[in-house]
Amino acid sequence: MKVIFLKDVKGKGKKGEIKNVADGYARNFLFKQGLAIEATPANLKELE
């Protein structure tokens, strides 16, 4: 799953980066902790 990092995550990505991560990792950790959001077309447009 592609995500947009909202904060730096050690060993995974830095704020503003778009990366592929495991679905479970994204849903169970990154999204719940507010560290990333899903890289949907709408979210990508907001990032620009």
Rank of each mutant, 00 (worst) to 15 (best):
E17F: 02
K14D: 05
R27T: 10
V21S: 02
G11H: 08
P41M: 10
P41E: 14
G24I: 13
R27Q: 11
G13Q: 02
N20I: 15
F29S: 07
G34Y: 08
Q33K: 14
G11P: 04
M1H: 04
L6K: 03
K12F: 15
L35K: 04
I4D: 01
K19V: 13
D23V: 15
V3G: 00
Q33E: 12
G24Q: 13
F31H: 02
L44M: 11
V9H: 02
F29L: 08
G16F: 09
T40H: 06
F5V: 01
K45Q: 13
E48H: 12
L35A: 05
K15S: 06
D23Q: 14
P41V: 12
N20W: 15
A39E: 03
E17K: 03
F31E: 03
Y25M: 07
D8S: 09
Y25W: 09
L47A: 07
N20A: 11
E17P: 00
A42T: 11
K15N: 03
K14Y: 11
N43D: 06
L30N: 00
P41L: 12
F31W: 02
F5A: 00
E38V: 07
P41D: 13
E48M: 15
V3P: 00
V21N: 00
A26K: 03
K7T: 11
V9Y: 04
I18N: 02
F29I: 13
R27A: 08
V9D: 01
K14A: 09
V21D: 01
A36S: 02
K32H: 09
A36E: 00
L35M: 07
D8K: 04
A42N: 12
T40E: 04
A39S: 04
L47T: 07
K12M: 15
E48S: 11
N43E: 06
I18H: 03
K12Q: 15
D8L: 04
L47V: 11
K14V: 09
E17N: 05
K15Y: 05
K2W: 15
G34M: 08
E38N: 03
K10A: 14
K19M: 10
K10F: 13
F31A: 01
V21E: 03
I18A: 04
I4V: 09
Y25G: 03
G34Q: 08
N20D: 13
A26R: 02
N43R: 07
G13A: 11
K45R: 13
K2N: 10
L30A: 01
